[in-house]
Design a protein around this nucleic acid. Structure first.
Length: 313
DNA sequence: AACGCGGGGGC
DNA sequence: GCCCCAGCGTT
């Protein structure tokens, strides 16, 4: 069982940590990915990239990130832009609420922190769109503070290497213990980068490539067959699941796309949006579109003024 | 604790 | 064509 970590077990944990960092760093130096926000890890680039990387794969983020920071090169530039311009630049990433929160974050950083995000974890987590993971990522990547960015890739790597497998629930405490041990022997930036790349490329959820892994010599889960299995099961029976194209989620995305296509600063009517969607979503009624638009307004992604819809000015 | 929030790639 | 991915905010 995990959880009752007695002092006598601290030694072995640290000993293992010390042995791990060398091979891990060597592997990262040899095969780690060169990414725009790694080459230039300014606080602004780190914040923008981490917001984009929440639930979105690296390959899709890279080109959009490049265009985004070219258009909005600093917190000041982002804060000065209309929210709608940020939503427009978010095209292709999904989860448009993240764009709204990033824009609000930039305004807060400029107004309260003079354009430099705080280093304190609690202060970071009070910023819109910054949770436990993102706060750790900003601290480690932007400021080199010893902290672990515990996304599920990194959680999986640490769980497998140090514990084999953990029961759900109070596992995060044990994972922070393991991460903390590694941080005693490795720089935060390269350590976190290496753990993330390992989780993304070799130590994958479904079919880990243990043969290629630099940590298999010490990994508690190396070669275990259970790791091929799915970790989650769909809660909804296949027969009951609504096709994605029928969901309000999909409808919301299509509405935002229609408004993105408008010339900036212009608006349109609900009727026009409904008509524009008739071809790809013929089953959706006017009131379906109205309800989705109201939800988008509530989320700050679009605005409605005098019964006309648009992205925010 | 459970749910809502996109879009693209893998199989 | 279906399944998978996995952080934040809200309830």
């Amino acid at each position: 069982m995990r959880g009752n970590r007695s002092p006598s077990q601290r030694g072995p944990l640290r000993t293992r940590a010390k042995r791990i960092v060398g091979p891990l760093d060597a592997w990262y130096e040899a095969t780690g990915r060169s990414l725009p926000w790694r080459r230039v890890p300014t606080p602004y680039y780190v914040v923008v990239s981490e917001c984009m990387l929440q639930q979105t794969q690296v390959d899709r983020v890279v080109p959009i990130f490049e265009a985004f920071v070219a258009r909005f090169p600093s917190f000041e530039a982002l804060a000065a832009a209309p929210a709608g311009a940020v939503v427009r630049a978010w095209h292709g990433l999904g989860y448009n609420g993240r764009a709204v929160r990033l824009h609000a974050l930039a305004r807060t950083v400029c107004s309260r922190y003079r354009g430099v995000p705080p280093e304190d974890a609690q202060a970071l987590r009070e910023l819109p769109g910054v949770g436990r993971y993102t706060a750790g990522a900003i601290r480690a990547f932007a400021y080199g503070i010893p902290d672990i960015a515990l996304d599920t890739n990194v959680k999986r790597v640490l769980e497998r290497v140090f514990y084999g497998s953990l029961q759900d629930g109070k596992a995060s405490r044990a994972l922070e213990t393991a991460g903390g041990a590694l941080l005693e022997y490795a720089p935060p930036f390269s350590l976190n980068s290496a753990l993330m790349d390992l989780g993304a490329t070799l130590c994958t959820a479904r079919r880990p490539k243990c043969v290629l892994c630099p940590l298999s010599f010490t990994c508690a889960a190396a070669g275990t067959s259970t790791s091929h299995e799915r970790t989650r099961f769909s809660q909804t029976a296949v027969s009951e699941r609504v096709p994605f194209r029928e969901t309000s989620r999909y409808l919301r995305g299509r509405i935002v796309d229609v408004l993105r296509a408008l010339p900036p600063g212009t608006s349109t009517t609900l009727a026009s949006v409904h008509k524009a969607l008739a071809r790809c979503l013929p089953s959706k009624t006017r009131s379906d579109v109205a309800a989705a638009a109201t939800a988008l307004v509530r989320d700050g992604i679009i605005v409605r003024r005098r019964s006309r819809l648009s992205l925010a000015d």
